[in-house]
């Protein structure tokens, strides 16, 4: 593992953590998924031609891994589900309780979105542009705009209730 890849882990692990958290509730599975995503990034890096932003490239890999994970989980028999752990495993002392609660509420709202809308919402919240989201999801910019509007509408409804 070279220094460049270690830098990539440092820079993008938080984004990957958030994307994974939107798809999977179990913290232990999330940790495994985190490793899987970065292994996939490591494998895919030689094919990255630098056409877009590296952040979008990694977000795309993370999203694809999460979708594969969901597809597998649906096929597997249901197991005993532990309480979803929405708190950070390594709490940051600077993070206030209020911030954590706000995040947990937002995460729950995002998790409740229909999959297609959720995908757009997650990437938009990560600050990616419409064009980048369209590229990651393989859909048109118009479709992104439409789904983004629906996401805002549902989020508003859920968060205000």
């Amino acid at each position: 593992m070279n220094q460049d890849f270690e830098d990539i882990i440092e820079q993008h692990s938080e984004m990957v953590t958030r994307i994974i958290a939107s798809y999977e509730r179990d913290i232990e599975i999330r940790k495994d998924l985190m490793q899987d995503v970065f292994i996939a990034v490591w494998r895919a890096l030689p094919s990255f031609r630098g056409e877009g932003e590296l952040r979008a490239f990694i977000a795309r890999i993370a999203r694809n891994r999460c979708i594969s994970h969901i597809a597998k989980a649906v096929k597997e028999p249901q197991k005993l589900e532990l309480q979803p752990d929405l708190k950070s495993a390594t709490p940051n002392p600077e993070q206030t309780l209020q911030e954590e609660q706000e995040y947990a509420r937002l995460l729950a709202a995002v998790q409740s979105l229909p999959l297609q809308i959720k995908e757009v919402a997650i990437l938009a919240l990560e600050g990616l542009k419409y064009q980048e989201i369209a590229l990651i999801l393989g859909i048109s910019v118009n479709a992104v705009t439409l789904r983004y509007k629906r996401a805002k509408k549902i989020l508003k409804k859920v968060l205000s209730s």
Binding site: R18, Q95, L106
Partner: peptide, 12 residues
């Protein structure tokens, strides 16, 4: 919301 969203730090 995006600002709240990015407050989430690493779990590992």
């Amino acid at each position: 919301l995006s600002q709240i969203w990015i407050t989430k730090k690493n779990e590992v």
